[in-house]
Structure formats: structure tokens, C-alpha cells
Simulated assay, not measured.
Amino acid sequence: MRRQAWVAAISTVVSAVLGLTWLGLFAVQPLLGFEDTDDPALGVAFVRAHPQVFALTGLALVVMAIALTISVASISEDNFVGSQRWPVTATTAAGLGAAVCFLVFGAMRVGASGPLLHIAGLSTEWGETVYLVVQIAGVQGVLPAGLLGLALWATGVSLLGLARRALPVVICVLGVVPALHVLVRLLGSSGLLPDGAWFILAASIPGTMLWCLALGFALVVRALRGTSTARERRPGRSGSESHP
């Protein structure tokens, strides 16, 4: 069980750090003067000027997806054993679905930069079409699905942790941040929110990543306490055994 606790803790921290790294890399494109990321001409120019940044955003997501898969499975097994099964199963499914979406989008970015530049060298219009395919299928398709799945998982973990008293209360309360992402995403797609609500949605993305990081640190503290307790309980550590 101690090993399981450490696996859950480390994988959660790694996935959160990589998620924040991806966000930083993703913001590089507009910061470097390529503001409209949906403009295929600007997009191809960015990939031509900074192919390593375009590929690194994908690599960060691929490794994040692997770490998130381990985190989701380990947390469910280590923290919610004995809980009613369907909430745990539904929460786990949301997290694993998010990992799949991140993996797909990351693989698209990693594999697209070389072929995109090659095709753009043959025809500018073809290169822009390839960029649009990656942009629509990735940024407008699987990426929002992955972020929604991650927010659903974080919300579910917060509710289960609060109900089972399996996680610190502050972590569970901070689960309101990913819950806001879910709420705004669902209501926004129904046209029930004003246009300004996009700011809440945008802010909830790094907020959800930071929640994952806070969860990871909480799990690290728990694993450290478990290791310390286990050492104290080893035979030969008690006073009666030390003084025959």
C-alpha cells in the first residue's frame, strides 16, 4: 500500500507539472507575435520559425497523458477502496478519457510539424490545410474534450474525497475550480451564458492544473507520513524490544 501511495503521489505531481508546462508552451505562439492561432498562414509561419516549440507542446501532453493514466488508476485504487462502485467507476472513466484525448492531441502535434513543413514547401495552400486539420481536430476537438474530462475527474475526486474523508478538506473545497469549468463548458455550449463567461472558462484551465498539483502534494505528504509510521512500527523499534 505504501508503494501504491507513492505511485499515486508522484504520477499526480508529474501530470500536473507537465500540464502547466504545456500551458506555458501553448502560450508561446501568441507571445511571439503569432496572435491568431486559428489563422493558418500565421500557424504555418510559426511552425516554420519555431518547430521545436510546436512539437514540445505535443510531447508534454503525451507524457502528461501517461502520468495521468497512472495517477487516475492509482488514486481510485488507493483512496476509494470499499466505496460505492459506480461513482468511482464514472470518475475513473472521466480521468482515463481525458488522458486518451491528451494523448491523441499530443501525438498529432509531435507528428505533424515535419510533414506540415514538407507539404507547405510543396504548396502553401496545402500546408495551411494541414495546419487547419490539426487545429480543428486538436485544439477545437479532442483538447476541449480532454480538459472537460480532466475537470470532471477532479470534481469527482473532490466529491468522493469529501464523502469518504479520504482527502484533505481544503483539496475537496478547491474542487470548485474544476467544477466551474464543467459548469461553464456545459452551459456555454447550450448558449445560456453571456459572452464574458469565456474568461471563467479560460481561468479554470490553469486552475484545474493547479488543483491537480495541490492534490499531488497532499498525496506526497500522506505517503511520507505513511512511510514514517511504517518505520516506527517495525519490530525492534519499541522501547520494550530495545531493553530486554
Rank of each mutant, 00 (worst) to 15 (best):
R2L: 13
R3F: 15
A5S: 10
A5E: 04
A5C: 04
W6K: 13
A9H: 03
V13G: 06
V17I: 09
L18E: 03
T21Y: 05
F26M: 04
F26L: 05
P40S: 01
A41Y: 08
A41D: 04
L42A: 03
G43C: 02
G43R: 02
V44E: 00
R48F: 02
P51V: 00
A55L: 05
A55F: 08
T57L: 00
G58A: 02
A60W: 00
V62L: 13
M64I: 00
M64K: 00
M64N: 00
A67T: 01
I70A: 12
S71E: 01
S71P: 04
S76D: 07
N79S: 13
V81E: 15
V81P: 10
V81Q: 15
V81K: 13
W86S: 15
P87A: 10
T92E: 08
A93P: 05
G95A: 09
V100Q: 03
F102N: 00
V104S: 01
F105T: 05
F105R: 08
P115M: 03
L116A: 02
H118I: 11
I119N: 02
A120N: 04
G121M: 03
L132I: 08
V133G: 06
V133C: 11
V134K: 11
G141R: 12
G156S: 08
S158K: 10
L159N: 06
L159E: 07
V173L: 10
L187C: 14
G188Q: 13
S190H: 14
G191C: 11
G191W: 12
P194D: 09
G196Q: 07
G196M: 06
F199D: 15
G207Y: 12
G207E: 11
G207S: 12
L210Y: 13
W211M: 06
C212E: 08
A214E: 05
L215H: 08
L219T: 01
S228D: 12
A230Y: 12
R233V: 00
S242Y: 13
